[in-house]
Structure formats: C-alpha cells, structure tokens
Nucleic acid binder design. Sequence first.
DNA 1: GACAAGATGTTAATATGTTATTAATTTAAA
DNA 2: TTTAAATTAATAACATATTAACATCTTGTC
Lengths: 139, 139
Amino acid sequence: MEKYQQFWCFRLGAITRKISREYNTRFLEFGITLGQSFVLFDLLEHDGAGIKDIAGRVQLDSPAVTGLVDRLSRQGLVERIDDPSDRRSVKILLTEKGKELAGRLLPIAQEYNSCIKDAIDSLDVPIFERSLTQLEQNL
Amino acid sequence: MEKYQQFWCFRLGAITRKISREYNTRFLEFGITLGQSFVLFDLLEHDGAGIKDIAGRVQLDSPAVTGLVDRLSRQGLVERIDDPSDRRSVKILLTEKGKELAGRLLPIAQEYNSCIKDAIDSLDVPIFERSLTQLEQNL
DNA sequence: GACAAGATGTTAATATGTTATTAATTTAAA
DNA sequence: TTTAAATTAATAACATATTAACATCTTGTC
C-alpha cells in the first residue's frame, strides 16, 4: 500500500467522486447533475435568494454558483430576476418546472443517502457523523 | 439546517474541497497541485508505470491522468518514453528534478495529514478510518 | 497469416471548482 | 456632497474530472 493512499484527503476524494458518479447516474434521466441538484434543493427553502447566499450555503464560490444557475436556467428550471432593492444583486427563482423537479429529486437523493449509510456498521454511523462535524468545524 | 446539508455526499464534498484548497496553498510555492502530487508520489514507488496503472492506483480515469502527466512533464518533473515491449503503451519516468521534488513534498503532505487527524477526537480516529475502509469496499 | 476483439493512450466536449479581475452599485467617511 | 471603500455578480484563465470517440497496437482464433 502506497503512502499517499492512506492520506485522508486522497481517500475522501476518491469516495466523494464515486458517490457523485452514482448520483449523477441516477439523475441522468432528469438532465441534472449532483451540484445542480443542491442549488435546486436550496431554492426549495430559499426561493429568491441571491448568488452569494446560495454560495454560502452550498459551500462554493460565487463563480461556481453562477455557472450552476446558468445551466439550470438554460433548462428553464430557475429564473434570474433583478433585485429591486439592490441593483447589483439578482434573485434566483424556481420556475414551476424547477419546483416540480426539485420535489421529485429530493426523495431519490435521500434514498441513496441511506444506501451510503448502510455501507458502514450501523453502530459506527453516529461516530462517523460526529467526526464529519468536527472536520467541518476544526479545519 | 437544510435537508441536503445532511447528505453525506454534500458534507464529504465540502470537506474534501476545503482540505484540497489547503494542500494547494501549501504546494503553491512548488508550482504543484494536490492531484499532481499524487502522481509524483505514485511514481516514487512505481517509476516507469503506464497511464492505466497510475490511473488505477490514484483512482482516476485515464484521460485525467493524461492531463496531470502533461502538466508535470511541461514542468520537467516527469518524462514520457515509449514502452519497448508494447508500442501502444508509454512509460512515465520521474526526472531527477521530479524525484527531488516528490521527496520534498511527501513530508509536507504527511504533516498536514496529521493536522487533519487532529481535527477529530483521537479515540474516534480508528473508527473513522474503519468507516472509510467500509465506504471504499461497499459502495 | 488474416481478422475480430480487446487494450492503451489521446483528444474533444462538457461540467465543475478556484483565483484574479472587472463592472456596477451601494455604503460610509471626510 | 464628493470621494473612498466595500459589496454583488459576472467573466477570464486555469486545473480538474467524466464520457464518448478515436487511432494505434496486441492478441487470440480460425
């Protein structure tokens, strides 16, 4: 076993890519990718949010969200409208089609998330989740 | 807390990006990125390997490794030479400069890997690593 | 030996993510 | 009030990752 293969960063990256690939496969028939779905899910609870707010919650930089919103809007799932209270800003709104799709994708994502949890000992799940929280907080 | 933010996929992705960013910052002065460093580290133990072998070990597709090797070779850190035993294939060799740099980066990476482990309770480390192994095996 | 099937690496097209820069606007300060 | 500083989103440039298509070469079978 090579040294670098024990780096958490390497292992986390490989696992994340594998999971993302599976999500993307499941979402393929809807024409959506995993990253795009997070924006849709976010808008379900924050319809009309600006780019920066979305970026903060999905933990991406603004330019990345700009790109995701571009692709979603090209599919008629979201709309950009000017923010009347701040002309620099933009409000992202779910269209009917987008709202409907987001509602359809959410249970699919939740179901696969359960599958992932099943991959490890059920007794270890709370500890694993606690570790994730600590990584989020302490890095 | 939004639903999607509890998806392991979301959390793992965000953590991985954060760690990668820190590695890339530490490697910046060497003109190297995290992904490129994995290829260098791999060659330390498998000098002369082919693209497909490297891809298998670093868990990427061949085209991704082709790109990484392109950038490394542009910096004179690796060399492509024809495989005399199979004319489809290519051997990737570390140059002196590449070998020297890989040896210099490895301890930096190991040191930051320890930092990351310090982010979680030391008692939880073995369980977290066991969970990673199970995710690798069962997904 | 000839041909079909498989293997190897590259290229192209698309999506993702980061950093730096820019344009437009708002806020704060002098 | 005029100017300086900060904010918002977009763009450009680059690196990364995946899939599909391709060219080249090897191998196995007849």
